[in-house]
Design a protein around this nucleic acid. Structure first.
Lengths: 177, 177
DNA sequence: GCACATATAATCAGTATTGAATAATCATGA
DNA sequence: TCATGATTATTCAATACTGATTATATGTGC
């Protein structure tokens, strides 16, 4: 799910592009946040062509072998927006990855973004509460000598959820301007 | 890679277990941090049996249909420790997930843990520096009207790396005691 | 006593991802 | 000039993951 969003987003913003070019764009621009392997890109380009989200054109340049250059279609643009919305709306997010929607924020409806961020905000504070409660429950099943250390796992998650919450609040303020 | 660590760890700590029981343990104890689907568990149990990391025994209880109960082998225990080390040592970690090693910290050599956490600490502050520098570079390729918003993506990552750093320092202090 | 939901248990077919292999071109410097 | 390594570009086989399906067992209210 993550991969198609990126491909469609890059094709929309910088397209038309061929597979290898796409991979380099991803590497140059979002490699801090996500990794996408070349075969994965080719795989999805093919799938998306079948679905009519992109069209391929065989191009010859110089003496180089032919290559397929892809463009996003109208249908692809609609799908892109739908995927962005879905990605941003996901609830269970223990990896804290919302990089694609952030990267393509400008393609989204600001009202949708704000609504979604507020939901995430609610969700995060719920998780923080739940984490405290669940922690005790889980600890009972962990051998006593491992408990002190296992506690670090909950600590780890708490700190990240707090960071997420902080970011959501910053972003909502920023979007308000 | 994540899944086998959990399976081996649970078999070591609570085993012998059958597939469904494993899935429930994962759901009860680490569902805040990771999700593992049933078919994935069955898939890996089979793979790991082939590799000799676990042994299966068909068991009949009451009128219930037979089911395979798995135990960890000596080889499996060695593999478990190796996997824990590898997982903790991973450098590129944009998801901030180190839940398995944390959960099974008590199985690891404290010296290894400290060494690895110190490495992570170094890595995190490197990333924070790099993020600042890379940010400007990336921004040049982003359409001006999208920049303010795309900046939130870097902000998001910075905050999480700072949270990670904070946790690493807390943990090193805690392990020192 | 029996309908209906939920829990237990496993499998399968379809989808996604990765490591490895292939092959051509380009840059370089000895 | 020509060998060597890096870059460009794609494909394939193997591996991993998921949604959907199947099937039995157990508990619950009526």
């Amino acid at each position: 799910m993550k991969v198609p969003v990126y491909i469609l987003g890059f094709l929309k913003r910088y397209g038309p592009l061929h597979g290898y070019r796409l991979k380099r764009l991803v590497a140059d621009m979002v490699s801090d946040f996500t990794q996408i392997k070349l075969p994965t890109i080719y795989y999805h380009l093919e799938k998306m062509e079948e679905k009519g989200l992109v069209t391929a054109e065989r191009k010859q340049e110089g003496r180089r072998p032919e290559r397929s250059v892809y463009s996003i279609t109208k249908k692809g643009e609609r799908e892109f927006l739908a995927l962005l919305r879905d990605t941003l709306a996901v609830r269970y997010r223990p990896e804290f990855q919302i990089d694609a929607p952030l990267f393509f924020f400008d393609s989204m409806d600001p009202a949708d973004i704000v609504a979604s961020l507020r939901e995430q905000e609610k969700h995060c504070s719920d998780v923080l509460d739940h984490l405290e409660a669940h922690r005790e429950e889980v600890m009972q099943h962990i051998p006593p000598e491992a408990r002190r250390i296992a506690g670090l796992m909950f600590q780890h998650h708490s700190l990240h959820y707090r960071a997420e919450l902080e970011w959501l609040q910053d972003s909502l303020r920023e979007l308000d301007r």
